[in-house]
C-alpha cells in the first residue's frame, strides 16, 4: 500500500491532502498520469514528485510502503 500527498494548489484542486492507494510497481510517470486523469489535473505533469521525502525521477518505480508527494513549484522565503 502507498500514500499519496498533495500540497498547495494541487491540494486545493484535488480537494484531498492524503490518499491511501496501491501503486507498487508503477513508475512516477504512471502515477502522474493516474492523478491527471482521475482528478482532472493536467497541471500535475509539471509538478515534481518526492518519494519518501526525496525528489524522484519520472522513471522511478514505486515500492510497497513508499510515500509519494506531489510538489508543485515551491516559493518559500
Amino acid at each position: 500500500m502507498n500514500q499519496v500527498l498533495f500540497f498547495a494548489e494541487l491540494r486545493e484542486k484535488t480537494g484531498v491532502y492524503k490518499v491511501d492507494v496501491e501503486l507498487t510497481g508503477f513508475s512516477v510517470n504512471q502515477v502522474k498520469e493516474w492523478v491527471a486523469k482521475d482528478y482532472s489535473m493536467p497541471k500535475v505533469q509539471d509538478a515534481m514528485v518526492a518519494i519518501n521525502e526525496e525528489f524522484a525521477l519520472n522513471e522511478t518505480i514505486i515500492e510497497n510502503g513508499d510515500v509519494i508527494a506531489f510538489i508543485p513549484p515551491v516559493s518559500g522565503g
Binding site: V49, F55, S75
Partner: peptide, 14 residues
C-alpha cells in the same frame, strides 16, 4: 493564487 517560482532541471530534480 498559489505562487511558485521554483527552478527545475530537465530531470525535474534540482
Amino acid at each position: 493564487e498559489w505562487i511558485g517560482d521554483q527552478k527545475e532541471t530537465k530531470r525535474g530534480v534540482p
